[in-house]
């Protein structure tokens, strides 16, 4: 995907869009450029070097955290229940999905603890989904800030993902309570929840930076994104067991389609969290020979690829955000 380049130069490199050497005004152009160079002036709004950029980002870590908290507070400030909605929203979501997929469609025949299975899936997927849609809005919604002050723009998608992380931590608290209520015993396995969520966070930061750049230049992305995330939701084993589906697809001879289902990053992170928290799920999944080590490998690869790719893609347009 590419967006229309603005007129003229798009980066900090010397500007020469029209190759016509004729002087344009009384003063020879070269002398002014030389004069500027003599005094160490640089092209306005050139992109900083990658390392300097990362340093500037690290220096803004308080800004990122504060912006996330402030935005969260502002989101709920108008409603009567206030930040109680941070707990209510995921619960209501889980309730709706349980009503449809648990009771109405009866997906739960092979899964012992279907409520916990489903709610885990919904919460983990919501983290990725909301990071994506927030990332797409992060530049457009902060135009006046971008135009007024100078700061590394990547702080914006980062802050929005941190905002979703704060929401996720609350959801995870709710999830732990549900898991305990539905009779899963606490175990050492629970500790693997942390690396799983850290990898998901890194993955989310990467993809939200990617859509942040797309959304900044193409308004249509925001319209399109809900459909993409909803399709993704239905393919990610939130309501059904991904291992069971892979097994049946493979039996039908579509081996590689099964592999794709398995490698889906959303499915990978959901599987890892389910494995961390739900002991009954280990028994459910045992029949289908799901390679657990492979899931961790996928998670690491997805996180690294998305983060490096997303960061690089976002950074390449750094000086263009806010233009127009």
């Amino acid at each position: 995907m590419s967006h229309r380049e603005p007129l003229g130069a798009s980066s900090g490199e010397p500007v020469a869009t029209i190759s016509d050497p004729a002087p344009w005004n009384g003063a020879g152009s070269a002398s002014l450029a030389e004069f500027a160079a003599q005094h160490g002036l640089r092209q306005s709004a050139a992109r900083p070097k990658p390392l300097a950029y990362v340093k500037a980002l690290w220096q803004r870590r308080t800004f990122i955290w504060n912006l996330a908290s402030a935005k969260t507070a502002a989101t709920y400030s108008g409603s009567r229940l206030g930040q109680v909605w941070q707990i209510l929203t995921p619960l209501l979501n889980a309730g709706v999905y349980y009503l449809i997929f648990g009771l109405l469609l009866g997906q739960n025949k092979n899964i012992h603890n279907y409520p916990a299975f489903l709610i885990t899936g919904v919460f983990v997927f919501t983290f990725t989904q909301r990071s994506l849609s927030a990332g797409a809005r992060s530049i457009g919604n902060n135009m006046s800030l971008i135009r007024a002050l100078h700061f590394p723009r990547a702080t914006l998608p980062l802050a929005y993902v941190i905002m979703e992380l704060q929401q996720l931590l609350i959801s995870m608290g709710v999830l732990i309570v549900i898991v305990l209520i539905t009779g899963e015993p606490p175990s050492l396995q629970w500790l693997t929840l942390f690396p799983a969520l850290v990898l998901q966070l890194i993955f989310n930061i990467g993809i939200s930076m990617m859509v942040a750049r797309l959304g900044a230049f193409i308004q249509d992305v925001q319209q399109l994104l809900p459909f993409i995330t909803r399709t993704w939701l239905y393919f990610s084993g939130v309501f059904f067991m991904i291992a069971e589906r892979v097994d049946s697809i493979t039996k039908h001879g579509h081996h590689w389609i099964g592999r794709i289902f398995e490698a889906n990053p959303a499915a990978v992170f959901i599987e890892l969290v389910r494995f961390a928290l739900l002991e009954t799920y280990h028994k459910d999944a045992a029949k289908y020979h799901l390679d657990h080590g492979l899931m961790w490998l996928y998670a690491v690869i997805w996180a690294v690829v998305a983060f490096v790719g997303g960061f690089w893609y976002f950074y390449r347009a750094e000086e263009r955000y806010g233009r127009g």
Binding site: P6, L7, G8, A9, S10, P14, V15, T17, I18, W24, S29, A33, A36, A37, H39, G40, L41, R42, Q43, S44, A45, A46, R147, E319, R320, G322, R323
Partner: peptide, 16 residues
């Protein structure tokens, strides 16, 4: 343009 919010079609702005 001096702030770098509009790209020059020709010429340049140098700043410290």
């Amino acid at each position: 343009a001096i702030a770098g919010l509009l790209p020059p079609a020709r010429g340049a702005v140098y700043t410290d």
